[in-house]
Amino acid sequence: MVILNWLTAFGKYIMMLKRVFRRPDKMRMFLKRYYTEIYQLGIDSIGIVLVISLFIGAVICIQFKMNIQSSWMPAWVPGYASREIMLLEFSSSIMCLILSGKVGSNIASELGTMRVTQQIDALEIMGVNSANYLILPKITALITIIPILVTFSVAAGIVGAYSIVYIGHIGTIRDLTIGMQYSFHQWFFWMGVIKAMFFAFLITSIASYYGYNVKGGSVEVGKASTNAVVTSSILILVSDTFLTQLLS
């Protein structure tokens, strides 16, 4: 029964995506919504991304310096580890997990409210492909803004590491810089960007699916919001495993 429900939901999700990925009725209106979504989903998230990344960068550095480093380990390891963790995992996967909470619940509740207040029905009656009009700009907006968020996150993490070394006196800036520059592979950055773009698609499409298909009232909107965050978080973690293996 559970499997049948999952298959039904997956089928509905695919059917919805089929309606989403159509040519917009009016390109001007699509672009208008696209820019709005860039702002709401992307620019509005920069603050939280910067704050979290700054502190995580600092904490990784502290952990390596204070708790993991030992006599056999070179002094530049905390810098190296901070950079690699930020590049490979935090700024893509973990940041997207955080965004699935912020952006995912926002999308699900927005669309869910539109559904229960018949705004989506109003679009359909006008002859507008509501899935395309409402969801496509969200998906494309987050996918296009996410590389910028990843870059900001990596940069903030590095700034965090430098800040804690400078302020907390837990090492030297020189050692940290050596570590930060040691054995740098540009591909790691692009791997993070590719993963984050995939996760951005998961976050927006899954949250849209739950919000768009709400039936009932405000309680159902709340449930849809929760389900969107839980489902997209699980799928991010599962797909992260496969993507990391695939891209490494």
């Binding site: 018949q118 009656i125 002859g127």
Partner: peptide, 16 residues
Amino acid sequence: LRRQMGMLFQGSALFD
């Protein structure tokens, strides 16, 4: 055909 229809919903359904 739908572009020839207008509808007034119970809750107005204006885009908020």
